[in-house]
């Protein structure tokens, strides 16, 4: 049990604050869930009817039956998992290099990558669209995944993390005759599991909820991701006449992310409980 995990009890005031905060977080979510089980016609009159019966599964049925939702779900999974895997690999490699290797222009290149944090999506999205059109990448998985792989934050984050690992580990391993890649793969990478989990969740989330790039890159319905597909399934005045359906969509789209979070959460907790070498 690592001592970095606080052992002492929380003061009462903090506990109260925590409970209040949790209530503020949860209330809207519960409310979303309730709305998703209400008929659209009833909600058009008054959204407060969400707190009383009758409830219905109709909205979920509308999502599951008939539309291409399973296809969109698959697309989203492929794109989000592909992006996450790619980001973790690329950023770990680059982060290791920037943190622990010496090569010409290392600092310059690192700052150069940091500049990427400041690039607003709107500044690159249209030129990138033209560029991808030239390469024939639209309406394809690579076209959807590639932009997500450029994650300056991931490099920055992993670099910071690799820097914090004590250097004597490298020396010990190098003395043992390990190659640089073995050192990276066998010794250092396992130490970064908490960081990988954090970055992984963050990347998956961003990719799953991304809207603008898939909207203009995937324009045929068999290549839609879930966000774009669900948006296309809405009627024009969905907020008014399809509120329950909209909320059911929200719940439906969030489930895979919650599952991913739960998986990673275990990782984080295990890392906290002392699996990581200190």
């Amino acid at each position: 049990m690592s001592a970095a995990v606080s052992r002492n009890r929380l003061p009462i005031a903090a506990t109260a604050g925590l409970l209040l905060g949790a209530a503020i977080m949860v209330t809207p979510l519960v409310w979303t869930l309730l709305l998703s089980f209400k008929s659209n016609a009833e909600l058009m009159r008054d959204s407060a009817t969400a707190f009383s019966a009758p409830y219905t599964l109709e909205n979920y049925r509308s999502i599951l039956v008939g539309s291409s939702v399973s296809r969109w779900l698959l697309n989203s999974l492929i794109v989000s998992l592909g992006t996450t895997a790619g980001v973790l690999i690329l950023c770990s490699l680059a982060g290791y290099a920037f943190a622990r290797l010496d090569f010409p222009f290392r600092r310059t290149l690192f700052v150069f990558v940091l500049l990427g944090l400041a690039v607003p999506e709107q500044a690159v999205i249209l030129p990138r669209h033209q560029f991808f059109a030239l390469l024939g990448l639209h309406n394809s998985y690579p076209g959807l995944i590639l932009p997500g792989l450029v994650a300056p934050f991931g490099v920055f984050f992993m670099t910071q993390y690799f820097r914090a690992i004590p250097r004597d580990l490298d020396e010990a391993a190098m003395l043992d005759g390990a190659s640089r890649f073995t050192l990276f793969w066998k010794v250092l990478l396992p130490l970064t599991i908490p960081a990988q989990a954090t970055l992984g969740v963050f990347t998956f989330l961003g990719s799953w909820n991304d809207y603008w790039w898939p909207l203009i890159s995937a324009t045929t319905s068999d290549r839609f991701t879930l966000t774009v597909g669900l948006a296309s399934a809405q009627m024009n005045y969905a907020q008014t006449s399809g509120l329950g359906f909209l909320m059911a969509q929200a719940v439906f789209a969030s489930i895979p992310i919650l599952i991913v979070y739960i998986i990673f959460q275990k990782q984080i907790v295990r890392a906290m409980a002392g699996t990581a070498v200190r």
Partner: peptide
């Protein structure tokens, strides 16, 4: 050392240059 530095950071930098810097 130089080589391995670029080998590790290269793949990211390459994508970074084509998919972010070039459109920028």
């Amino acid at each position: 050392g130089h080589l391995s530095g670029y080998a590790f950071a290269g793949p990211f930098l390459l994508l970074y240059a084509t998919i972010l810097v070039y459109p920028l």
